[in-house]
Write a protein that binds this DNA or RNA. Structure first.
Length: 490
RNA sequence: CGGGGUGUAGCGUAGCCCGGUAUCGCGCCACAUUUGGGAUGUGGAGGUCGUAGGUUCGAAUCCUGCCACCCCGACCA
């Protein structure tokens, strides 16, 4: 492991890549755009999954699993959907290889599929095709299903965690008897996402709706949570869609209502992905590496012994043996790093790079004084604290760190929501201050498009809690009833 | 798809212009001394130089083709 990483002020993009690689979260695979998620990175994802999965179940959802392959014909059943995904689909055309006689393995042309299979970029189509067989009556509704899966989108340009060709996610797909119920579900899951982002990841988000242009392919309405990264760029961290009856109509999913009438089912779908890992990394980390919120840190406390000789180590180790169960009693995950192959300084740097929230260093001096040295990753402060009551102290400090990380990100985010009242001011802010820019917009796709072409800024969302306010569009001067949030985005 | 870059040991690299089978650092293995912010010494292991062909007595180096990945941009979660 080489010393140090590129500072984020010098090259934010490189800083990000280096953290991902050097903190041992993931690495590039030999396939373009694909990554190997390494054990440390995957354990963070597992913690995210566990929390989200629990929340989904608490809100009445069940997990199921649908196939990776989707018959090509399913895609064309919903017009907007196929338009949205057609250009980024991986397609399976054959099912067998053969030896060409020269020692090369080639595709066996005789093993061509009658109908090509699409590697799912999202599962609406195959799921709605399945739901057709599951739903007959209003008694079968609501149907609340989630799936944890991988999906493939053949993007032109990829970035570790933020946009990979294959990524891991969850996708909820629900069916309801009425539009109101489906909308309620859509909004409820958006709240679940926002709660997770803020209270577990420590990433403040703006809840809002997408404009028509930015909407999910096949949705009537797309809700989203938008986060702000430290370089002032926005990141869409999760989406929840009200699909109306589009997929029910495309796949002919009807139910008999209480009144005995045949009606199309109403739908929602919602998802978050390993992109959240990217958000987590970019929102909090610093020039020493990753900074993890305690609630998602695989290791919350690392203990580094500092000793001369085996005798001192024995003493420290037996203290740690007593401390560890007390920490575990508070639900704290702890690692005792007594490797003899690395010196303390190396370990300090390594755990900072990996974002471990609290580090304890214990040496002979501490053992004599009945203390330990405690270092906080988020503020880099060091304290000498008594061994007496240490577990409780750490328990409380972890909560403080969680709060501090969130508060810091919230302060940054709030300082980077700026109102712009003219196009000049708007462009100026994008170049200098960055972040979200609240501005009036005339509501047309043309204006949105022109602003995007001229400034690379897009409308991230129309915030749900937006106050109504008369104004004029910054580009066209036409009347507007509210401001929307613009930003350059990942 | 445009622009840029890179491919040499597990990782990062030198060598290439001016051909003679490979440099250095980190890491790894052994032993010793070390341990309060990225240890030191001694010894050791590890290489089809991305790939295919060509020129040559001889190619990491020159020529031609191919492949792959990364970064920046347009597109997208």
């Amino acid at each position: 492991m080489s010393k140090g990483i590129t500072s984020k002020s010098e090259d934010y993009s490189q800083w990000y890549n280096e953290i991902v690689i050097k903190a041992d979260l993931a690495e590039h695979s030999s396939v373009k755009g694909c990554m190997v998620i390494k054990p440390y990175g995957y354990s963070i994802w597992e913690k995210m999954q566990a929390v989200l999965d629990h929340k989904f179940k608490e809100t009445g959802h069940s997990n199921a699993y649908f196939p990776l392959f989707i018959p090509k014909s399913y895609f064309s059943k919903e017009a907007a959907h196929v338009d949205g995904f057609a250009t980024e689909c991986a397609v399976v055309t054959h099912y067998r290889l053969k030896n060409d006689g020269n020692g090369n393995i080639i595709v066996d042309e005789e093993a061509k599929l009658e109908e090509e299979l699409i590697v799912r970029p999202t599962s609406e189509t195959i799921i709605w095709n399945t739901y057709k067989g599951w739903i007959q009556s209003y008694r079968d509704l609501p149907l609340l299903i989630n799936q944890w899966a991988n999906v493939v989108r053949w993007e032109m340009r990829t970035r570790l965690f933020l946009r990979t060709t294959e990524f891991l996610w969850q996708e909820g797909h629900t069916a309801h008897a009425t539009a109101e119920e489906a909308i309620e579900e859509t909004e409820k899951m958006l709240d679940v996402y926002a709660d997770f982002a803020e209270n577990w990841m420590g990433v403040p988000v703006v809840k809002g709706r997408k404009t028509e242009t930015e909407r999910f392919a096949g949705a009537l309405d797309t809700y989203c949570i938008e986060a702000l990264m430290q370089d002032g760029k926005a990141l869409q961290a999760g989406t929840s869609h009200f699909l109306g009856q589009n997929f029910a109509k495309a796949f002919d999913v009807k139910f008999t209502s209480k009144e005995g009438k045949q009606e199309y089912v109403w739908a929602s779908s919602w998802g978050v992905s390993t992109r959240l890992m990217g958000a987590l990394i970019m929102a909090h980390s610093d020039d020493s590496g990753l900074v993890l919120p305690p609630k998602l840190a695989p290791i919350q406390v690392v203990i580094v012994p500092i000793h001369k000789g085996d005798e001192e180590l024995q003493k420290i180790s037996s203290f740690v043996d007593e401390l560890t169960p007390r920490l575990k009693g508070f639900g704290i995950s702890v690692k005792y790093d007594d490797r003899d192959s690395q010196r303390p300084g190396f370990k300090f740097a390594e755990y900072e790079l990996k974002g471990v929230p609290i580090r304890l260093a214990i040496g002979a001096r501490d053992m004599e004084n009945g203390t330990v040295e405690l270092a906080r990753r988020d503020t880099k402060e060091k304290f000498t604290v008594p061994q007496e009551g240490l577990a409780e102290y750490i328990f409380q400090m972890l909560a403080q760190i969680q709060q501090n990380i969130y508060d810091k990100a919230l302060k940054f985010r709030n300082e980077h929501i700026t109102e712009a009242n003219s196009y000049e001011e708007f462009k100026e802010l994008l170049e200098t201050k960055t972040g979200f820019i609240a501005a009036h917009w005339d509501g047309t796709a043309e204006t949105e498009k022109r602003i995007k072409e001229e400034t690379k800024a897009t409308i991230r969302c129309i915030p749900l809690d937006n106050k109504l306010e008369d104004g004029v569009c910054i580009l066209t001067g036409k009347p507007s009833k509210q401001r929307v949030l613009f930003a350059r985005a990942y």
